[in-house]
Amino acid sequence: MRNLLRWETALVFLLIVVALTGQVSTDGSFLSGGNLFYLGLDIGEIALIALPLTLVIVAGEIDLSVASVLGLSSALIGWLWNAGWSLETILPTVIVVGALCGAVNGLLVTRLGLPSLAVTIGTLALYRGLALVVLGDTAVADFPSSYTEFGTTPLPGTNIPYPILLAAVLAVLFGIALHASSFGRSVYAIGANEEGARFSGIRVKRIKLILFVLAGAVAAIAGIVYTFRFSSARADNGVGLELAVVAAVLLGGVSIFGGKGSLFGVLAGVLLLGGLRNLLILQDTSTEVLTIVTGLLLLVSVLAPSITRRVGTLRKAHT
């Protein structure tokens, strides 16, 4: 726990460093309302998906199919809209489909005992493939502006984008679920020692299934956000986003082995990743550098705990 707190302190410190460097190097435009609005828009989907994925990873599993669920949900919106459905019926349908996608993952993992890494690599291809089957390589863009403006305008009177409001509300809910409920304690217990959790009466399979369903449903919501933000429903929306989300969660101090991490750290991780990217874009840095930075951050975030651990054991050996 102390190690974890230290990591989150480090993240907050890094965030402040990025914010200050940004502020100084861009003559104050980095922290301006307008830029923060774009920063918020830019990290909306990642922030959303990172919430349930944190729980999944804390429980010792992984879900690499989230970006494909996002794409499938976007493709479905376009397809159903073309078929003449109203958006009021499309959106709940899409979220239900996302939850079903998550349920398929969860059932394969819990009922058949398959490794989630292999399952979700499979469904990553499957769901993206279904998205392509549904919509092909066409784009649907004629959505009413009453919906698309949720993705392009801030809350009236503020600079807060709607997706961030949504992410904040969900973050509070997920935060309570993970950190202030018996459900959350069970999730940590499962990640720390699955067998121990089972013997202490935790319904491991059911909880894991719920986590995968939540990941699917929230990924579908992120698909809705993505579609309206770009006013474009495409089957290839969000390709590769799973890597960015996993990177953000791990950067936030969640252990890939499960049992460790906090939602606060993950939110800081998302902000740090988004802030750095935004800053580099403001500085006209090429996108390839962004890719390298994302990768390096991910490497550093996993190497740092390992190195501190090693230094710790060395120190102990000395005393």
Binding site: G122, L124, A125, L126, Y127, R128, G129, L132, V133, A235
Partner: peptide, 8 residues
């Protein structure tokens, strides 16, 4: 378009 779904 079917290829990816099938390999998955």
């Amino acid at each position: 378009f079917w290829q990816q779904a099938i390999s998955g």
